[in-house]
Amino acid sequence: MIEAHSISFRYHEAWVLQEVSFRVEKGEFVGVIGPNGSGKTTLLKLLYGLLAPQRGEILFELVPMKKMDRRDIAKRIAVVAQETQLLFPFSVLETVLMGRSPYLGRLLFESEKDLEIARKAMEWTKILPFSERPVEELSGGERKRVFIARALAQEPEVILLDEPTANLDIEHQIDFLDLILTLNRERGLTIVMASHDMNIASEFCDRLILLQEGRIYQMGTPEEVVTKENIESVYGCEVWIDQHPVSGMPRISLLRKGGR
């Protein structure tokens, strides 16, 4: 579905991503992990065409990204960003309806059909009860759901998530990730998620891409990627890795220097 062919990108002098190649298949749940500044967010921005790579190219269903216009991209790829600015008090419904924008084009007003799609998206994300409240009044977890609903209103094939669980407590983390997993498994949506939290990434993702200073260090199943050698070499700190007692997926524990 998405193919990156040795893409390199820089904002100024220094390369932020170098010679990155990978494929994401339809229906996959892929995690992008790596230390701060390893290029995770930049990679996502390249995947939806906000930025264009200086070298290499990205294909979406075999079509070069740079040949697609913004509206086409927005109909197929939705993004849930880390934090969205809320300057003026739009309601939940108004915010979710904004997801219909790529289909409206020059039209100024949404149709009944758009409203119905937005309503379904809110039902799915369980935010229908507060559809008329201003988004700014909601809690962090509810807000995240609003932006997932906005993404669903775009009727995309791919959803890109940037640090979706940052700032959420564990209840809302699980809620949110279960919702994403359902979308992935039941609706066949392709998910690419950049995350700091390697335990979450290894628990939920089919495949992981581990970035180090803008290059792919390793790519594969969580078992292949989340190993003591890989993590210690990329992050430069000592960790302990065993298996999650329930799922059997790799689990990272931090070790304090000098032991306890």
Partner: peptide
């Protein structure tokens, strides 16, 4: 209003 990147994401 929700930022330029957000607007780009919506096409």
């Amino acid at each position: 209003l929700s930022g330029e990147e957000s607007a780009v994401q919506l096409g």
